[in-house]
């Protein structure tokens, strides 16, 4: 599968490219009062209102680490379940339970990587900076560990309940 990669602090993260709708440079967003702290706010992209998740806060990072690199970030906007369904119904059913448009704030953009599915390993127990629950699997890649995140878990949706 193709994976769109990015960094979050020292972590090298990846998301299945079919789940990604587009990538933007960080822009002003409107805060949502009363929401969880990891909801940074609402974005309006070409008339679509998108909930932006602060990935660092969602992964439980300290305030120092969060405020360290908010200046220059990127937003990874996800496709909705309906959009994924048109392309790959199987994937939509298995790993795309969210109906509303959402986005994740990340640090630096990486490249698009081709991953052989068989090379994906289950998450190791001692990963720092990210709980095993949020990890779909890991791939050893050019002496780097690429962590493929489980977007449904990150968004707080249990796909198995669907």
């Amino acid at each position: 599968m193709l994976v769109s990669t990015f960094t979050l602090g020292e972590l090298y993260l990846g998301i299945d490219i079919i789940l990604v709708r587009e990538i933007n440079r960080s822009m002003e967003c409107t805060p949502v009062p009363g929401s969880q702290d990891y909801i940074r706010g609402m974005l309006n992209i070409r008339g679509r209102v998108i909930s932006l998740f602060d990935l660092k806060r969602r992964l439980g990072w300290s305030e120092d680490e969060v405020s360290d690199s908010t200046i220059k970030q990127y937003n990874v906007i996800m496709k909705t379940r309906a959009e994924v369904m048109k392309i790959n119904p199987e994937l939509a059913t298995a790993r795309c339970p969210w109906e509303d448009p959402v986005g994740l704030a990340v640090d630096q953009l990486g490249d698009v990587r081709e991953i052989v599915d068989d090379n994906i390993l289950p998450p190791p127990a001692n990963l720092r900076g990210i709980a095993a629950d949020f990890v779909h699997g890991v791939v050893e890649f050019e002496q780097n560990l690429l962590i493929i995140i489980d977007v449904a878990m990150v968004l707080g949706l249990d796909k198995h309940n669907q």
């Binding site: 490219i17 079919i18 990604v20 990538i23 440079r25 990127y74 953009l109 698009v112």
Partner: peptide
């Protein structure tokens, strides 16, 4: 250059959708 990079990533995302 940075904008071009973002543009190329988005292009690949669109290309991936087309299979």
């Amino acid at each position: 250059a940075e904008l071009t990079n973002v543009l190329s990533l988005n292009a690949r995302i669109v290309a991936a959708r087309a299979g």
